[in-house]
C-alpha cells in the first residue's frame, strides 16, 4: 500500500529507466567509452597524417611517442594508431551488424516459437538447443575454413553463432505475454497473429532484448578477434584488432606495443559493452525500484 500511495506521482517508463541508469556509474562510463571509440574510429583516421596501409620501411618498429607516431609503428613501418582506428571500424561494425542479424533471426524464431507453442514451438526450440550445443569457437572455425574469409562472411558466421540466446529470451517472454489480457483483447478485436506478435508482444519484451543485444555486441567483437587472430577472419593488409594481435605475437619481446594497443582496445570495448548491458538490464527492469 505504501508504494501504491507513492505512485500517485508517476514517472514515464523512459524517465524512470534513465534515472536508474544514471545511478549505474560503470554503465555510464561504458557508454561514454563506446561513444569515444565509435567517434574515434569514424573521424580519427582523417585527423592523422598517416594512412593505415602506408608503408615506411625506414621507420620500422618505432616505439610509441617517437616523433609523429603516437602509438609507434609496426614491422612494415605502418602507423599503429591509424591501424587501430581502421581496425576499430571493422571490429565495431562486425559487432553491430552481427548483433543486428542475430537479433532479427532470434526475435523471429523466438516470437514464432513462443506464440504458437506446441509442435512448431518444440521444433524451433529444439533446433535452438541443438545449435547451442556446438562449441562456438570450433563451429566458427569449421565454417570459416569452408568459406572465403572476409568482412561479410565473418559477420554472417558470427551472427550464426549468436542468435540462439536471443531466441530463447524472446520465446520465454512471448510465451508469458501472450496469456496477458491485452493480447487476448487484440485477438478479440481481430488482429492477425503476425500483428499480435510484432506489434503487441515483442515491444513488451524490448528490455531483455536490448540487454541481450549489448552483450551480443561484446561477444561478437571478441569472436571476431579470435577468428582473425587465428587467421580465418579479416585478411591483411586490411586491419582488424584480431589480425593486429596475430601480427604482433612474433615481435612480442622487442615490440610489445604492437600487442598492447589492440589488446587494450578489445578489453576496453568488450568490458564497456558488458557494463552497458548490466546497466540497461537494471534500468529497464521496472521491478528495480529507486530506493
Amino acid at each position: 500500500m505504501a508504494t501504491a500511495a507513492l505512485s500517485t506521482v508517476q514517472l514515464a517508463p523512459g524517465q524512470a529507466a534513465w534515472r536508474r541508469f544514471r545511478r549505474h556509474r560503470l554503465a555510464l562510463a561504458g557508454g561514454v567509452i563506446i561513444l569515444v571509440l565509435v567517434l574515434g574510429s569514424a573521424f580519427g583516421p582523417y585527423l592523422l597524417p598517416f594512412d593505415d596501409t602506408y608503408i615506411d620501411i625506414m621507420k620500422r618498429f618505432a616505439p610509441p611517442l617517437s616523433g609523429a607516431h603516437i602509438l609507434g609503428t609496426d614491422e612494415l613501418g605502418r602507423d599503429v594508431l591509424a591501424r587501430l582506428m581502421m581496425g576499430a571500424r571493422v571490429s565495431l561494425s562486425i559487432g553491430f551488424v552481427a548483433m543486428m542479424i542475430a537479433m532479427a533471426v532470434g526475435i523471429v524464431v523466438g516470437a514464432f516459437a513462443g506464440f504458437y507453442g506446441g509442435l512448431i514451438g518444440a521444433i524451433l526450440m529444439r533446433l535452438v538447443d541443438a545449435v547451442l550445443c556446438f562449441p562456438t569457437i570450433f563451429l566458427l572455425l569449421a565454417l570459416a575454413a569452408l568459406t572465403e574469409p572476409g568482412l561479410v562472411t565473418t559477420t554472417v558466421l558470427i551472427a550464426a553463432t549468436a542468435w540462439m540466446a536471443v531466441a530463447r529470451v524472446v520465446e520465454a517472454q512471448v510465451r508469458s505475454l501472450r496469456e496477458r489480457e491485452f493480447a487476448v483483447a487484440a485477438l478479440a478485436f481481430g488482429s492477425s497473429n503476425l500483428r499480435i506478435m510484432f506489434r503487441e508482444l515483442v515491444p513488451n519484451a524490448i528490455a531483455p532484448i536490448v540487454v541481450a543485444a549489448t552483450l551480443n555486441v561484446a561477444k561478437a567483437i571478441l569472436l571476431e578477434s579470435y577468428v582473425s587472430y587465428l587467421g580465418y577472419g579479416i585478411q591483411p593488409p586490411a586491419a582488424s584488432w584480431g589480425n593486429m594481435l596475430n601480427n604482433a605475437q612474433i615481435y612480442l619481446t622487442n615490440a610489445p606495443w604492437l600487442a598492447i594497443a589492440p589488446g587494450l582496445a578489445i578489453t576496453l570495448a568488450v568490458t564497456s559493452f558488458n557494463f552497458l548491458g548490466d546497466g540497461l538490464r537494471d534500468a529497464l527492469d521496472p521491478r528495480m525500484n529507486i530506493p
Partner: peptide, 28 residues
Amino acid sequence: QIIFQDPFASLNPRMSVGTAIAAPLLAN
C-alpha cells in the same frame, strides 16, 4: 467484443491510448 476486469492488464503498456483504440480499426 470483450472487456476485462483489469483495464491496466488489457491495455498494452507500450502503446498510447490513441494507438490502442485505433488498433481494431487498423487491424481490420
